[in-house]
Amino acid sequence: MTKKESPGTCHETHDEADRGGCEIARRGFLDQLKCAVAGLAVTAAAYVLPLEGQTALGTEAASIPAIPGYDWSKHRWAYGVDATKCIGCLRCVKACKTENNVALDAHHFRTWVERYVYLDGHEKPLIDSQADPVNIAAAGTEEDYRFANRYNNDDVYKAFFVPKLCNHCTHPACVQVCPTGATFKTMDGVVLIDHNYCIGCQYCVQACPYGARFFDHVRRVTNKCTWCYHRITKGLMPACVEVCPVEARIFGDLDDKESKISQFIKNNRVQVLKPETGNGPNVFYIGLDSEVV
């Protein structure tokens, strides 16, 4: 082994024959790297710092989303369901699908209606919804919805309908588990999904204790009720509330003490579904049995 004299002698050199001029190259490279790191750091800082400043400034300048004529800090939306009034006509389900471009089939619903039927001598109810094959057969098509006259009315001890939808929880589990920040809670109390950021992992579908979310197999994103955010921010009612012929669905602003929802909650003994999950649901029901969860 011979030792090559060169300014770039490497202390850890092992095999000079193999390494050749590497000593110079490595030292030079390291020197260059020092410069590069410093340079990158400066560049990055120059790029990043103003951005952060901009963000901070931006937050101050526009503290509310740019929705014409709407300030989300002035509303606190909530929803009420009067199960004693629901006639199970399913016009809400149909209207919701039309309004929100949800696939017209029996598998994807932003809102749906369940029927609880207690037959004489039975403790547990029979539960069906518009997605039940018997009810689909009664409607004749998956594009329309109808509850079939499937029980002998003489055998029915008690029966009622329960409309369901996303509860727009105060502490939503679905938002907690979203890995991309695609789903979030707005200041006015609505849980939304940003379909540009949703990667379709469906953790939120699993996390929701109410089964309110479904996977859109065409767009490969999760979908759910938005309380028709595009309507309520324009002063309209959600489509399901708009078409309900018997006022079984109530929607409004909790910050307005005279609103229908405020009066509904004030004048009735209301309950929420699965309060034990700690999600803090914001759909308030009256007229439910304990069997309804």
Partner: peptide, 9 residues
């Protein structure tokens, strides 16, 4: 809306 079925108030 108007067929007599179980569940309708």
């Amino acid at each position: 809306c108007h067929e007599q079925i179980a569940g309708r108030p």
